[in-house]
Write a protein that binds this DNA or RNA. Structure first.
Ligand SMILES: NC(=O)c1ccc[n+]([C@@H]2O[C@H](COP(=O)([O-])OP(=O)(O)OC[C@H]3O[C@@H](n4cnc5c(N)ncnc54)[C@H](O)[C@@H]3O)[C@@H](O)[C@H]2O)c1
Ligand SMILES: NC(=O)c1ccc[n+]([C@@H]2O[C@H](COP(=O)([O-])OP(=O)(O)OC[C@H]3O[C@@H](n4cnc5c(N)ncnc54)[C@H](O)[C@@H]3O)[C@@H](O)[C@H]2O)c1
Lengths: 194, 194
DNA sequence: ATCTTTATGTTACAGATTTCACAATAAAGA
DNA sequence: TCTTTATTGTGAAATCTGTAACATAAAGAT
C-alpha cells in the first residue's frame, strides 16, 4: 500500500486483505503498542517500522536447510524470502553427491553443521530429511544451538520446551481437505463444525 | 503398531505419540463412535477400519497439482502419499515446456483442467503457482468443480463459503520461528504466551 | 459553534476448546 | 467369588479465543 502511495490504512482494509476481522487487527496492533488515530486510521510508515522492529527486519534473519532432496531443493531455489529479510545461509545433507560449495547457498556435509551454526549464529532451521531420521537430525540441530525448526517430516518430534517446532504436513492438509469434500453435506445445523 | 504385532492400544499411547492429551484422544474417538474397552484399551484393527471409513481410504483419493515449478515438482516426486491412499492423478501448468504426458503423473495444459477434473471427478487440488496468478487460477479450479485447495502461495484467496482453502505459508512459518527465537527470554510470567 | 459521521481502543460478552475430575466398569488377581 | 486395579467415557470447570458493543476522539458539515 505504501508503494501505491497510501499514507494511512484502516483496520478493516487490513482485515479484508488478510482474512481477519477489523477488531482482531486493532487488538493485535494494540498488543504491540501500535496506535492509530480516531477517524484517521493507522499510519502505514509507523506500522512498517514497528513490524520491522518486532521481527528485527533491520537485519537479514539467517536460516539453514537440512536435507537437500526434492523439498529441500525447492526451498533453496525460492527467491521470495529475501523480500521478507530471510536469508538461507547454508544447507546440509548426508549424501556427498549433494555437496556444492559454489551454489548461491552452499551445501555442506552434516559434520560441518555445529561449526557453521555457531559461527553464523543461526537459530532457525528448515528440516527436509526422510521421516525415519528426522528425530535424530533434530537432536543434532538442538545440540548445535538451533532453537526453532520448521519440519516437513510427518512425525511428531520430541524436543525440550524451549525449542519451537513448526510442522508442515502436506499429507494431513490433504486429508483435511478430502474429509471436508467427503462430508460437505453433513453440516445440518448450519454452524461450521469439525 | 499393528505391523509390530500389537492388538490393542491405550489412549495415552496414542497421546504420547501424537502430542495430544489422552483425554483429547478419547473425546475425539468418542465423537466418531470409536469405542474402547475398560482396562483393555482400543482394538487397533477396529480403529484402523473406522479411520479408513471416515477418510474413505478404501479407494484412492484423487488430487491434482497446479503449477509444476520447484514446489509443484517436489510434490509430484514424493512417493509417500500412496501409503495414505492419496494419488496425484494429473498436473497442470501454463508453460508448454512442462507438458509431459508420459511421466508417472502427466502434466497437461491449463486448458485441459475442466475436462480432466470432471472426467476423473477430482475434488482436491494443490496450488503451486506464482502468487500473482493464484487468485485467478483458484477461480478456474472452483469453476472446474474443485472444492478443496491446498495453496502454497502467500496470498489470502477469496472463495465462496462452500470451498475450503488450506494454506501453507513457509515464509510465515519461518517468521513465527524467528519471532520466538528473538523473544525467548520475554516470557516473564512462566506461562506460555504469543 | 454545534452536530454528525467515522474509526479507534478497550471492555464486556459469548463461544469454543482444553483440562480436570471421577463415576462406571471390565479385566486381572486374590 | 470377592477385591483390586487400570482405563474408558463424559459432565463440569477452566481457559482460551473471537465477537460485539460502546465510549471516545478527530474530522467534516451545517
Ligand atoms: N516432497 C514432498 O512433497 C513431501 C510431501 C510430504 C512430506 N514430505 C516430507 O519432507 C521430507 C523431505 O521430503 P523429500 O521429498 O525432499 O525427500 P528426499 O528423499 O527427496 O530428500 C531427503 C534428503 O535428505 C537427505 N538425508 C537423508 N538422511 C539425512 C541425514 N541423516 N542428515 C541429513 N540429510 C539426510 C537425503 O540425502 C536427501 O537429500 C520427508 O520427511 C518427507 O516425508 C515431503
Ligand atoms: N518454493 C518455495 O520454497 C516456496 C516458498 C514459499 C512460497 N512459495 C510459493 O509457492 C508457489 C510456487 O513456488 P515455486 O517456487 O514452485 O514457483 P515456480 O516459479 O518455480 O513455479 C511456478 C509454476 O507455475 C507455473 N504457472 C505460472 N502461471 C501459471 C498459471 N496461470 N497457471 C498454471 N501454472 C502457472 C509456472 O510455469 C511454473 O512452472 C508460489 O506462490 C510461491 O510464492 C514457494
Amino acid at each position: 500500500m505504501q508503494e501505491l502511495g497510501f499514507e494511512t490504512v484502516y483496520s478493516y482494509n487490513l482485515g479484508r486483505e488478510t482474512g481477519v476481522s477489523p477488531e482482531q487487527v486493532r487488538k493485535d496492533f494494540s498488543q504491540f503498542g501500535m496506535k492509530g488515530r480516531k477517524k484517521g486510521g493507522y499510519n502505514i510508515n509507523e506500522l512498517l517500522i514497528t513490524i520491522r522492529e518486532i521481527f528485527r527486519k533491520d537485519e537479514l534473519q539467517k536460516v539453514i536447510v537440512v536435507g537437500t532432496g526434492n523439498m529441500g531443493n525447492a526451498i533453496l531455489q525460492y527467491k521470495g524470502f529475501q523480500k521478507n529479510m530471510i536469508e538461507l545461509v547454508a544447507a546440509f545433507d548426508i549424501d556427498p553427491s549433494k555437496y556444492r560449495k559454489k551454489l548461491p547457498v552452499p551445501v555442506y556435509s552434516l559434520d560441518k553443521l555445529p561449526k557453521v551454526v555457531s559461527d553464523l549464529n543461526v537459530k532457525t532451521a528448515i528440516l527436509t530429511v526422510p521421516e525415519q531420521v528426522a528425530q535424530g537430525v533434530v537432536n543434532l540441530l538442538i545440540e548445535a544451538g538451533i532453537t526453532g525448526v520448521l519440519s516437513f517430516a510427518p512425525t511428531v518430534l520430541k524436543v525440550p520446551p524451549h525449542i519451537t517446532i513448526n510442522q508442515i504436513c502436506i499429507g494431513h492438509e490433504l486429508e483435511s481437505l478430502i474429509y471436508h469434500s467427503l462430508h460437505l453435506g453433513d453440516n445440518k445445523s448450519g454452524k461450521e463444525k469439525c
